[in-house]
Amino acid sequence: MTATLLAHDGHIARVQGIQVGHFTDPRRPTGCSVVLCPQGAVGGVDVRGAAPGTRETDLLDPSHLVQQVHGITLSGGSAWGLDAASGTVRWLEEQGVGLDIGVGRIPLVPAAVLFDVMLGDMRIRPDAAAGYAACQAASHERPAEGSVGAGAGAVVGKIFGHARAMKGGIGTASFTVDGVTVGALVACNALGDVYHPHTGQLLAGARTADGQQLLGARDALLRGEAPSAILAGSNTTLGVVATDAQITKPQAQRLATVAHDGLARAINPVHTMSDGDTLFALGTGQSGRNLGLMTLFTLAAEAVALATARAILLAQSVDVAGQERLPSWADWQARAHA
């Protein structure tokens, strides 16, 4: 079943009207990712984690005036990484994209960040130039996955300490039904472990004290093992779920809410006090078609679950000077078959 996940060829840029780009900083594991909808899309958001870092999420409230946004920025760098969205705004403005205010256009770009500043020099973090570079790289092609963009510095399974964690990343998936596509892009930096969403197989997370095996944080907690002291806000899974179905802004909000079911299928524990789990939803309407909400929501949750797992399966181990190596799922598989 893991091979099936790796073979999945769907991706969020298959959604009509969507472009995706990454910037990965070569100086340390960090970066940002953009999901652009230059022709506009209705948007929604559901912030489920208790320690979020966000920008421009209030305008996505269904009762608020603005109906469309022009992109989403996901970034590493914790609160400093929110600056990457300024680069996205600048790039879109240069393309003539944004809300027409008569004297010019204002691109509307909500954003969210994850905490990756424990890997290397924390003074290196995504800024406006990084967001701009991600936009320059954006296309309708399949986005890179694994340890790139907003997932470059992602780490999962930190419940029993960062030294016993594993490498996270960014992944994508999509499904098409009756001419309507629903896709997801997920950067997984979860406090919890990550599981195969179909089989329940533990893929990555907290390791045993000797670092040689997966511990199984859920079972350890149920046995009464005490977690390590956890820095608030030091985790977070971010994502965008997008569709080219014709949906309303309230429906986009609901799409973001239901999409969190996908996180719950792949991450345990999820939505903790130390995670800032945030999912955005975009509806471009460019398929010109409608799809029943039951089917639409089912596709969204499934795409998020698969994208989360792919973020782990395609991540790469990381070595940072003076720090212990963080292994990836791929490394462990190679070792098992050596």
Rank of each mutant, 00 (worst) to 15 (best):
F297R: 00
A242G: 07
L296N: 06
V318Q: 11
T295K: 06
P269Y: 09
F280L: 04
A217H: 07
V304T: 04
L279A: 02
L313V: 10
L326V: 14
G276D: 09
N235R: 12
G239Y: 01
A305H: 05
M273P: 02
I267T: 11
G292I: 10
S274A: 15
L215M: 12
L282S: 03
Q212A: 14
I312P: 00
Q323Y: 12
T257Y: 11
Q253G: 15
L279I: 12
A321S: 14
M273A: 15
A300S: 04
P327M: 04
H337P: 00
T298C: 01
G216H: 05
A281T: 06
T248E: 10
Q253W: 07
V320A: 08
A307Q: 02
R325N: 08
W329D: 04
H271P: 05
D277A: 07
A303V: 03
H260W: 11
T237V: 07
S234F: 02
F280T: 04
T248W: 08
A330Y: 10
A321D: 15
T243Y: 08
A232F: 08
T308S: 12
D261H: 13
G288S: 08
F280K: 04
W332K: 13
G216M: 10
R254N: 09
Q213K: 13
G239K: 03
R310Q: 08
L299T: 07
L326R: 15
I312Y: 01
T295Q: 09
I247S: 05
L221K: 03
V318R: 11
P227R: 13
L214Y: 06
G211D: 03
V270L: 00
R223H: 12
L215N: 01
V318P: 01
A315W: 06
V240H: 02
V240I: 05
V320C: 11
M294D: 14
S228E: 14
T298G: 06
A330I: 10
G233K: 12
A307E: 05
D261Y: 05
T284S: 09
L326T: 14
G288R: 00
T208Y: 01
A307I: 00
H337G: 01
S228V: 13
I230H: 03
L214V: 12
Q212E: 15
G205N: 07
H337I: 00
Q316I: 01
A301I: 05
A264T: 13
E302F: 00
R254Y: 09
K249S: 04
L293I: 11
V240R: 02
M294H: 12
A209R: 09
H260T: 13
A336H: 12
N235Q: 10
D244Y: 07
D277P: 04
R207L: 09
V240F: 03
A315I: 05
L215Y: 05
A330S: 13
M273R: 15
V320K: 14
T243K: 04
Q286V: 02
S274C: 14
Q251N: 01
G322Y: 09
L293N: 07
T243C: 08
R218G: 00
D277L: 07
Q212N: 12
L306T: 13
A334I: 00
A226K: 13
T237D: 02
A259M: 03
Q213M: 10
R289Q: 13
A309V: 06
D277W: 08
R335W: 15
